[in-house]
Amino acid sequence: MPEMLKEILKNLVSKPATVNYPFVKPEPLPATRGALSWDMDRCDQCQDCERVCPSMAIKVLPEEKRVEYQPFKCLFCFLCIDNCMQQAISNSTTLTAPGYEKRVEVFEIKKQ
């Protein structure tokens, strides 16, 4: 007797396990490691994040007063968040969106 029979018939009559993803968006879990952003009011351009980044996705340019972040190089390990003394880096639970090009996100300090 084939042993899967019971399971298969059960699946056939019960609801599919599929999340109809792009049409139904489930609530993101609070711990999800999503896209990063820099709060430039807090950032003091210390380059700590650049130093710890394992994949060199962050470039801090103190002279030009900006941070260049490459989401297509980032590992989402969140070492930068853990190591930021100023707590200038924050994450969201939204995932980084795919794109036709490799974007570079630039965060600049507003000129006074």
């Binding site: 297509f72 989402f76 995932l95 980084t96 969106a97 795919p98 794109g99 036709y100 090009e101």
Partner: peptide, 8 residues
Amino acid sequence: VDVYVPGC
């Protein structure tokens, strides 16, 4: 490459 999908 036409589409880049991020995430590790």
